[in-house]
Nucleic acid binder design. Sequence first.
DNA 1: TCTTCATTTCAAAATAAGTTGAAATATCGA
DNA 2: TCGATATTTCAACTTATTTTGAAATGAAGA
Lengths: 110, 110
Amino acid sequence: MTESEAAAKFTALAHETRLRLFRLLIVNAPHGLPAGKLAEHLAVAPNNLSAHLNVLSHAGLIAMRKAGRSRIYTARMDTIGETISFLVDECCQGHPEACQPAMSALNSSC
Amino acid sequence: MTESEAAAKFTALAHETRLRLFRLLIVNAPHGLPAGKLAEHLAVAPNNLSAHLNVLSHAGLIAMRKAGRSRIYTARMDTIGETISFLVDECCQGHPEACQPAMSALNSSC
DNA sequence: TCTTCATTTCAAAATAAGTTGAAATATCGA
DNA sequence: TCGATATTTCAACTTATTTTGAAATGAAGA
């Protein structure tokens, strides 16, 4: 992953609505939810939500499949994993103790 | 951490210069580097870098200490750990297999 | 104290991102 | 095919972020 691709992923998460959206999709992985349900859940206008879904999609953080007249969005767990790895990539070089706080926070969530 | 605090942290990482800056500080944890060295390393004007350091500081992702006329910045590994946990917080509820890709990416980096 | 060095602050200009309402597309069931 | 439903697209407007150059701060050494 390049720095600019990674920055695009963080940009996608750098908005309260999109962050809530992404976390909602994580909770609903791997099934996903249709755009309409997402808009309802987050209390956002459908056209506004569509723009946000577009940002997350382009960043590769979510995927979409069609089902009838709905479009179902899902979180891409692979991409988020790569993004986190990219961020903390070289955190242990030389000073393993420096990255302990990050690692322990993570192990307790998943 | 609230959604808006988390979004502020992602905003801080959502810029190529700041992302490079933060990763540079991770590689140099826990010592850190002075503002001048950071500007030199990243080939960015000192005043511009100062603005970016300010964004990362306010987000709580980096810390600063003074040493003579330099200001030394360090990555806050505790905050980044909390931020990542917040993001993938409920990823294992119901469907543990969904978060495997993210977890394995992480374990292999640190 | 004067000068230099390291860095920040400020305000203006430039660029980018988000929101809105109206119109378009595309699928479904009658 | 027609009307209803689900969602996206577009363009305008609004708001926020980034960059720039010049000036300010503050510590160190002569």
